[in-house]
Every structure is written in structure tokens, then in C-alpha cells.
Design a protein around this nucleic acid. Structure first.
Lengths: 130, 130
DNA sequence: CCAATATATTCTGATATTGGCATATGTCAA
DNA sequence: TTGACATATGCCAATATCAGAATATATTGG
């Protein structure tokens, strides 16, 4: 069978390095830019730029507006949010601050558990007393 | 021509939803797990699991250790960091807090510029005095 | 050594993706 | 209207990807 995705979501859209470049220049531009400007900025063949812009448009990462014979593209970076949220869930694996927090939480949990254990053995002793 | 990527980096590895699932169960497990356990957890055919694990291993997102006739896989989530860093650069596009910070910075910059302008006109007046 | 278990690899068919080139479409300006 | 400009689209060839089924490889226990 074939790849089931068909470039439908942001994850597949940003998998392509050139599309990340494209997003990058649009973010720097911080506004609308026409295709010719992007072509000049990146130095790629115009059809390639149009095609990658098409993919980004299909997943909602950019929007277009006709202006005369030009098409003004602008970034919809909010569409990157699902990617951000997904990967953020793994932040704790490298973020030192979070690791310290986690370790402290674990220590707390340990002492809590120890307290519970002490309590349990106390109960057990009382049980034994009966 | 062909796709230039060839599943070399984390971006392409996580583009596939099933591989994100795989990463998810390994993260929950928080340690080493053998293939059979993963197969049971996800309910996919074993070869498919092995193949996706192979991709993740090639990009360094998981590591393997042989243990008897089993292979223990564990997550190397730090390899997600480049993805995190890349997408984090766009956080300001949806994070309300950051947007407020940005707007405040812009206001400050405006008043600073206004002050400079006032100073410049003052200098100009002095110049005119001569 | 043999059988069972655990996992990887190979092969195949269907589909997707990308870049390059040529060309179509749409819009303005003289 | 005609021509120049801006952009999209269509087609092609090469390659990549994925799932599925079959099979190979390695390890352990008897």
C-alpha cells in the first residue's frame, strides 16, 4: 500500500526542509509577500515555490489574497500549534529545569510513600497488639 | 526527481502518525520495552512495529539493546529537541502572553523613538539658533 | 541438535512526492 | 487588442514510502 497521509497535516507539511525555509522567510517578512519576492529571497525556480506554497495552503499554514496580478501570501503560524503541543509534551526529557522539578516531585513522592509505609506499619503494630 | 529526504531527520520521522504513537507508548513506558510488549500495546502486526522502530532507530529517536532473544527499545526523546526549537520560534504567533509582551515592547520602542525625535528637534532648534 | 520463541528482513504492489520543464491562465498597460 | 508580467498547473521520470505476507535469523530450553 501507499503512504496514507497525502500531506494533509502540519506534521507532514513541515517534514520537507524547503517548506520550513518557506515558512521562515514568510515569518521574517511578517506580513503579505508576493511570489516573486519569495522567489527572489530563496532563489528557487518559481514553479517550485508555487507548488510548496500550494501544500502549505492546503494545510492552512499560509493564506493567499489576490492583489492585481500578484498573489499575496501570509503565514498562519497558529497552524503549527498542534506540532508545538505534541513535541512540548517531551520537553521534560531535555529541559534541565523541568528535570529538577520532576526529581523534586519524585523525592516528595518517596517521602510521602515512606510516611504512608510508616503509618501502615504503625497500624500493623496496633493490629498485632490486639 | 525524488523526495530528497529519505527519512534522515526527526522531522520526517515524526511526520508519520504511527511513529508518533510508537513514541507515545515508549514515553509512557518510561524505560526499556521489548517488541512483543509494544505489539501487544498497539495491536499492530509485528513486522510493521519492527519497521517503524527501525526508522526511529536510524534517526536516533530510540535505542536498542539485545537482552537474550529480546530487543529492548527505549526512547531518546532529546532527539526531538531540534523540532521543538524550530517550532518554538513561532510560539509568539499564538501565545497570548508573548503577544502582550511583544506589544508592550513595541509601545516602549515607540515612546523611545518619540523621545529621540524630540531630542533631535531640540538639537535642530539649537542649530537654528546659531 | 531440535523446537519454540522473538524479532528482523525481503519482496511486492500501490501510491505519493519532488524537481524540472513546458505551458496555461489571469491581469495590467500601452 | 496586444504584449508583458505574475503565477499556477500539467506532465514526466526518479525515487521513496507504506502495508502485508512470507520468510529469514538468532536465541533459548529441553
Amino acid at each position: 500500500m501507499a503512504p496514507a497521509t497525502a500531506t494533509i497535516d502540519a506534521f507532514t507539511a513541515i517534514a520537507e526542509p524547503r517548506r520550513r525555509d518557506l515558512i521562515g522567510v514568510l515569518a521574517e517578512a511578517d506580513g503579505e509577500r508576493d511570489v516573486t519576492w519569495i522567489v527572489g529571497e530563496l532563489g528557487w525556480p518559481q514553479p517550485q515555490v508555487s507548488k510548496h506554497l500550494g501544500v502549505l495552503r492546503r494545510v492552512g499554514l499560509v493564506s493567499v489574497e489576490r492583489r492585481g496580478r500578484q498573489r499575496m501570501y501570509s503565514l498562519n503560524a497558529e497552524r503549527l500549534r498542534p506540532v508545538y503541543e505534541w513535541v512540548k509534551a517531551y520537553e521534560r526529557f531535555w529541559d534541565d529545569h523541568l528535570q529538577r522539578v520532576k526529581r523534586r516531585a519524585e523525592r516528595l513522592e518517596q517521602s510521602r510513600q515512606a510516611a504512608v509505609d510508616r503509618n501502615e506499619s504503625a497500624c500493623k503494630e496496633r493490629e498485632d497488639d490486639r
